[in-house]
């Protein structure tokens, strides 16, 4: 089997040290978090990082903590399995557990991290669509200090993000969802086990005064465009009417039109376009029924 080729190795103890290494390094340094994507690409010869900066010695990057009454903060090095099993997240952001369960195999989830999944910027990321509809904001540290950006504007293309040299994601903040809301994440893979998404849809929906009136809706689609995308036009269309079968079908057509899937070795463009409609309709109905049965307040 293929062996990893040698690289310069750094193991910073603090965030400041990490930022310093990243911005000071003459060689292109890659961040090592869970390694489940990075090491595969290295073994496959897709990348040959001259240097790796292992983030695991930095304390405080892997916790899930409430931030007062406003929301919850997930450290960048939190594993997908920790998200899957977190009782705090299950209480307030069940969708995160749903998305986490869909990612890879249980053993991959024990290694893979949230920050790594976001930073990799895969169009087929299992976490990104749910994070987008939950209005996730990323806390980023870098040579010019800390900043916060909405996840929606983080991705710039397949594998590329707005991160500047020396910057890294430290945590993800999720605001608490409104009352009478429901969410769903649905994914289509090839087999039943660990699978890369052919298409995936996350929806977050808040009901108004009646059970068919939508107060707010967020729709995000994965694996059907260059980046995990928010379907703004579809959202507007949903808001323009009340939830009926006809309206949902109309919205499904809109979401298919709004995405730009490609043909690759996993599926054809036309199949993806059809599937995004199916996934969308099912996810919308599911989030709607969850919203109806949710408590009035959190």
């Amino acid at each position: 089997m293929k062996r990893l080729t040698p690289f310069s190795y750094f193991e910073p103890a603090t965030l400041a040290e990490a930022v310093e290494i990243l911005s000071g390094s003459k060689e292109k340094a890659y961040l090592l978090a869970g390694g489940t994507d990075l090491l595969i690409r290295m073994k496959r010869g897709e990348i040959a990082p001259p240097a790796l900066v292992n983030l695991k010695r930095i304390s405080g990057l892997s916790s899930i903590e409430r931030e007062g009454q406003s929301g919850i903060r997930i450290g960048a090095l939190t594993t997908i399995a920790e998200i899957e099993h977190s009782s705090a997240l299950r209480a307030s952001h069940t969708l995160m557990a749903e998305a986490a369960t869909a990612l890879g195999s249980p053993s991959i989830r024990n290694l893979a991290t949230l920050g790594g999944n976001i930073g990799r910027a895969s169009p087929a990321s299992d976490m990104a669509p749910s994070l987008i509809v939950l209005k996730a904001r990323l806390n980023i540290s870098g040579p010019r200090g800390n900043k916060q950006v909405g996840l929606e504007s983080f991705f710039t293309g397949p594998g590329t993000t707005i991160l500047q040299p020396g910057e890294l994601i430290t945590s993800v903040f999720l605001p608490d969802p409104a009352a009478r809301s429901g969410a769903a994440y649905l994914k289509l893979g090839r087999g039943g086990g660990m699978d890369c998404a052919l298409g995936c849809v996350a929806i977050f929906l808040t009901l108004g005064n009646t059970d068919t009136e939508v107060k707010e809706v967020l729709v995000a689609v994965g694996a059907c465009s260059a980046i995990p995308m928010r379907a703004n036009k579809t959202e507007a269309l949903i808001l323009s009417g009340s939830l009926t079968d006809g309206h949902i079908q109309e919205a499904a057509m809109a979401v298919a039109a709004e995405t730009s899937p490609i043909t690759d070795l996993r599926a054809s463009e036309s199949y993806r376009r059809q599937m995004v409609q199916v996934l969308f309709s099912r996810a919308l109905k599911l989030s709607w029924s969850r919203a109806r049965s949710s408590k009035d307040t959190h």
Partner: peptide
């Protein structure tokens, strides 16, 4: 052959 890994050349898992 484009799908040269078990991620892309799918074998049945216990879920299938």
């Amino acid at each position: 052959i484009l799908n040269d890994t078990l991620a892309d050349y799918k074998l049945a898992s216990m879920m299938d």
